[in-house]
Design a protein around this nucleic acid. Structure first.
Length: 556
RNA sequence: UGGGAUGUCGCCAAGUGGCUAAGGCACCAGGUUUUGAUCCUGGCAUUCGCAGGUUCGAGUCCUGCCAUCCCAGCCA
């Protein structure tokens, strides 16, 4: 229906009003990550919102690296972030900025505040500042250095910049109100001294501006109209406004806060994701089970599906946990439309068709998409020995089981009807082979009016290709792992299943390796990036809906 | 205990005082089907955190209460 990125929400209503009133004629937003880690699904919400709103209103969205704390930032992270945003399908064009691009202007605005008597250099130690800030119930105490003269402050601040003082020995603070109920307003720090190499400015600066001071001014410099951020910054808005109201800058962007995206059974905290990597719980930042965008990319989640997911979830101010089923459904409905079909047997069970000639082979054809002829068809080799899924045979099956059991006839997809005659077991009593017969008249899967309820997938023993398949389940057993004392206790030990004996029709390896395929009746799969061995590896993107499994479960 | 915010179906989320409280996911019941997939049909909140009040009329306004989240970095 609509091709918009964002559905109507309280933010678009504000924008509509601003456009209607003439406050703005063009919309400018920004996505402002700090380059100190990898992006995850939570960031996808911010990216889709900021870039999406801009696109929907024919405006622009800047990519701005909030690089004011050299301690944790790296160029590698910045590059990874750019890659993820691009992969998600957004383009900032020429509009890439760094907060550090504005260091000189920021410094000048700080001087302006000093000149207005609204900022002062504080010599208190970090402990003293903390102590004098007070707490929720206790108003703060003014710093003994709060009433320094403008001249002295100017001189001291200049010397801070010149590197005359040790790291941490002085800070520049805004002179606001040490008794404010909003602790952010109790004379917040504007500049701190840090002798660290910066990814963009190198060693030019030894003083670095704080987030609150930098962010609003950067927004204003870039002409941002709506500065969208998450709920935890609500308390910072008065400060954001204070800075802009007290310096001579014409623009005053509006900060609007929305709730973060939380996904059930997953974690989206940089620190915790890092623990998963450090403790080798996962394969790395791009492990297909990770909530990182790089993990989802490797897993095979199409970016269009992630965009659709974010759109479905909506934007509001209430704290929420989106259930995983919403993501899965979005993935499935997208993939159902675009994924070519193929047959792959994950856990093979050999079938010998006794009445099929020993030396005969046939090339059958199958549609690549049941609802879309434009996907064409492919050739599928068939022979006397095939493999079917182990779960498609059951020893003492009731009438509801539409698959193989002795005496029952099923349809081989795109091929013949076969009837199971006998199951052969090994010494342990496990079924290792099925003896079947086929109906030569049923080629193509159609025969007379016989009612064959089941259709199963298969692969020719002689022609099948062996691949490794990795099945994924949720990484955590708990819907809100982050709420636990130790989220590592909720790790699902069975989140990864590796199947090395999977067999697929040869077509899969001849076709495009970058697309997601549906292994009919199984799941969607995408080739993994690894080429460690000769054996191709495929990651399970998401399973198919399985009402049979649900039925069985409900009967227990 | 101070400041800021949020509470509409199991999970999201429309609703901006006036016909029977959108929609999606989940769930349930049917139908179609060469994927037990897809698709289609139907069901699923006498009620909007609770209690009062204003009004001809309230999820929407007022008052009080309750619950949850965020804030005491020289992090962002």
């Amino acid at each position: 229906m609509t091709d918009k990125y964002v559905t109507e929400n309280f933010i678009t209503q504000i924008i509509d009003a601003d456009l209607a009133s003439g406050k703005h004629t063009d919309i400018v937003t920004r996505f402002p990550p700090e380059p100190n880690g990898y992006l995850h699904i939570g960031h996808a919400k911010s990216i889709c919102l900021n870039f999406g709103v801009a696109a929907d209103y024919s405006g622009v969205c800047h990519l701005r690296f909030d690089d004011t704390n050299p301690e944790k930032e790296s160029a590698e992270y910045a590059e990874a972030i750019r890659e993820d945003v691009k992969w998600l399908g957004f383009d900032w064009g020429e509009l890439q900025h760094n907060a550090s691009d504005y260091f000189q202007q920021l410094y000048d605005y700080a001087v302006e505040l000093i000149n207005k008597g609204l900022a002062y250099v504080d010599d208190q130690s970090i402990e003293e500042i903390r102590e004098n800030r007070g707490d929720f119930n206790t108003p703060g105490k003014n710093s003994p250095y709060r009433e320094r003269s403008v001249e002295e402050n100017l001189d001291l601040f200049k010397r801070m910049k010149a590197g005359e003082f040790d790291d941490g020995s002085k800070v520049l603070r805004a002179k606001i109100d040490m008794t404010s109920g909003n602790i952010n307003m109790r004379d917040p720090v504007i500049y701190r001294i840090r002798r660290l190499h910066h990814i963009h400015t190198g060693d030019t600066w030894c003083i670095y501006p704080m987030y609150d001071f930098t962010h609003g001014i950067s927004d204003a410099i870039e002409g941002i109209t709506h500065s969208l951020c998450t709920l935890e910054f609500e308390d910072h808005r008065p400060l954001y406004d204070w800075y802009l109201d007290n310096i001579s800058i014409p623009n005053h962007p509006q900060q609007i806060e929305f709730s973060r995206l939380n996904l059930s059974f997953t974690i989206t905290s940089k620190r915790k994701l890092n623990q998963l990597v450090e403790n080798n719980v996962v394969d790395g930042w791009d492990d297909p089970r990770m909530s990182t965008l790089s993990g989802m990319r490797r897993r095979g989640y199409p970016p269009a599906a992630i965009r659709e997911f974010i759109k479905r979830v909506g934007v509001s101010k209430s704290e929420s946990v989106i259930s995983m089923t919403v993501l899965e459904d979005t993935l499935r409905s997208h993939l159902n439309k675009v994924a070519p079909r193929v047959m792959g047997v994950l856990r093979p069970l050999k079938v010998v068709i006794e009445n099929y000639p020993e030396d005969k082979e046939e090339i059958l054809t199958g549609a690549n998409h049941p609802q879309d002829d434009s996907y064409g068809e492919r050739e599928i080799p068939f022979g006397r020995e095939i493999y079917v899924e182990q779960s498609d045979y059951k020893e003492n099956a009731n009438r509801k089981f539409f698959r193989l059991t002795e005496g029952r006839e099923v349809r081989l997809r795109h091929a013949y009807y076969i009837t199971c005659q006998k199951a052969i077991k090994n010494e342990q009593g496990e079924v290792v082979e099925l003896r079947c017969t086929y109906d030569p008249e049923s080629r193509g899967g159609t025969a007379d009016g016989r009612k064959v309820k089941g259709t199963i997938h298969w692969v020719s023993a002689k022609h099948a290709k062996n691949i490794e398949v990795r099945l994924y389940d949720r990484l955590f057993n708990h819907p809100k792992p982050a709420s636990l004392d130790n989220f590592l206790d909720a790790i699902n030990p069975d989140s990864l299943t590796i199947l090395k004996d999977a067999l697929v029709e040869p077509y899969l390896l001849e076709a495009d390796q970058d697309t997601v395929y549906q292994f009919e009746r199984n799941a969607y799969f995408k080739r993994d990036k690894t080429h460690e061995t000769d054996q191709p590896v495929f990651n399970q993107v998401v399973t198919m809906r399985d009402s049979w499994a649900k039925l069985e479960e409900n009967n227990q």
